[in-house]
Amino acid sequence: MSNLEDLYREVILDHYRTPRNKGELPPPAVCTEGSNPLCGDEIKIFLDVRDGIVHDVRFSGHGCSISQASASMMTTAVKGKPVDAVRAVAKRFKQMMTIEEDDGSTPADVKLGDIEALQGVVKYPVRIKCAVLGWNTLLEGLATVGA
């Protein structure tokens, strides 16, 4: 069972059972939808970005524990942060998920904190797309608001 404990760390299960920032934001917040056609997971990210700062963020939708926990942890990590810092965290996260190369452009002081608990997902390649769904949708949302 040691393998599974690596995947389903307590902090992940905590975010899954009690998701943070779950819900919606009214306009003018921007809503971006993402889905994982292979597993049917669907997610919406609501972003309130003003003056280059992510003032508020919410997510809704449904998916497995990994996709839900990852989205929840993401919202706590990016709320109140400048957009540049959010992009840097997203990049670091995708590097941890091995879907982006570390090209050295992300400063070493960009830390993932609790999100590092998702490291165990890398050992299960089919689950990586679950972990990344919320993040990719967030990045799309940032592009939409032109931030």
Partner: peptide
């Protein structure tokens, strides 16, 4: 429980 989580545990 989400089916992916079910199948992941069953896989163990």
């Amino acid at each position: 429980v989400h089916p992916h989580d079910v199948s992941q545990v069953l896989d163990q």
